[in-house]
Amino acid sequence: MFDLLSQPVTLTHYLCISAFLFTVGLLCMITKRNAIGVLIGIELVLNSANLNFIAFGSPYFQQSTSGIDGQLIALFVIVLAASEAAVALAITFHFYQKYQTIDVDQGQDLKG
């Protein structure tokens, strides 16, 4: 993978970056105790997928038969990510009101 660094930018570079972002986002979602941190992880994951879509849908990297589908999908995903973040933030706020903290580990009343 490291000889990618010395080559001109192709589709593979984009894919590697998005894979890296995806992994980072996933790890962020799992390991963070802060609720906002988890949301950051979600945003990272969604954005990595966006990057994938745009890269695959770009006419400059490969003969694409899908028209502007990739970029269109990316637009929609941005909107959805934003709304999801808004909703998740509202829920976090509600959580804060009840538990006085946004540490997700504190919410362990529901178990079994």
């Binding site: 996933l26 979602m29 799992i30 390991t31 105790r33 997700v104 580990d105 919410g107 362990q108 009343d109 529901l110 178990k111 079994g112």
Partner: peptide, 14 residues
């Protein structure tokens, strides 16, 4: 299995 901790759930998934 149902520990009540969100991060455990996510760990399971992953």
């Amino acid at each position: 299995f149902q520990t009540g901790s969100l991060r455990t759930y996510l760990l399971f998934l992953l």
